[in-house]
Amino acid sequence: MDSMIFDLDGTLWDPTDTILLAWESILKEDERIISKITKKDLKSVMGLQVPEIGKRLFPYLDEQTREQILEDCCLAENKYIEKYGGILYSYVEDVLKVLSQKYKLFIVSNCQDGYIEAFYQYHQLDQYFTDYENPGRTLLSKGENIKLIMERNHLFQSVYVGDTEGDQKAARYAGIPFVYAKYGFGQVREYDYVIETFDELVRIF
């Protein structure tokens, strides 16, 4: 194995409190929003691409309106993340430090452009990662972005660490093993490895 590729939300951290504050700053004055977005609502869509999030949270709005609202929310999200950060799971930095001495590390997340950069800015973890990718920059699916990262960085034996069924399918699409972060937001039935806590990665790899 030469590398490890990580999902972000539900795998490295839980940013939902900060995201909720950001979204509330945009939605509270918008008369088109008929129901308040809750933390449970946000957790239910973690890992999805932005257009799908819009369909699930605002099914009563037309596509153009959803796109405009989501764009505003995502811009606010990046600013709030950069300022307030999120909750890193236990031992994340310690584990990344150990793993980065043995493998090249990467992030592939279904987020908007600027989100991973905001994560790096607040938590100062970019020193452990070689590269990252997201559909906000490429307009590609997570599986395609994993393959892009592998091709761009000449990776041959990687694994993907994530917490949702979408992550599992993306790893399968890219043809690499999937490590299920069971402590995260999703429920996954099929996986190659499973971890109950982030630091178990050191024991497995």
Rank of each mutant, 00 (worst) to 15 (best):
M4S: 08
L8Q: 09
G10A: 00
L12Q: 12
P15A: 13
P15T: 07
L20N: 14
E24N: 15
S25M: 13
S25E: 14
L27G: 11
L27K: 12
K28G: 01
S35W: 15
T38C: 10
D41L: 03
D41R: 00
S44R: 10
V45F: 06
M46K: 02
M46F: 04
P51Y: 07
P51C: 01
L57T: 03
P59F: 05
P59C: 04
E63Q: 01
R66W: 15
L70T: 04
E71M: 06
C74I: 02
C74T: 00
A76V: 01
Y80A: 07
Y80M: 05
I81W: 15
E82F: 10
K83H: 08
G85D: 11
G85E: 13
G85S: 12
Y89S: 04
V95N: 06
S100N: 15
K104W: 12
K104E: 15
L105I: 10
I107P: 10
I107W: 15
V108P: 09
C111G: 07
C111S: 11
D113R: 15
E117W: 04
Y120C: 07
Y120T: 00
Y122H: 10
Y122N: 05
D126P: 06
D126C: 04
Q127N: 11
Y128G: 01
T130A: 10
Y132G: 03
Y132C: 03
T138A: 11
L139S: 14
L140Q: 15
K142F: 14
E144G: 11
N145G: 09
K147V: 13
M150G: 06
M150F: 13
E151C: 11
H154G: 06
F156P: 00
F156V: 01
S158F: 08
E165G: 08
D167R: 00
D167Y: 09
A170M: 04
A171Y: 02
R172K: 14
A174E: 10
A174H: 11
G175V: 09
F178Y: 14
F178D: 04
A181C: 13
F185N: 02
G186H: 03
E190T: 15
Y191G: 01
D192L: 09
T197N: 12
F198N: 01
F198D: 04
L201V: 04
L201E: 07
V202T: 14
F205E: 00
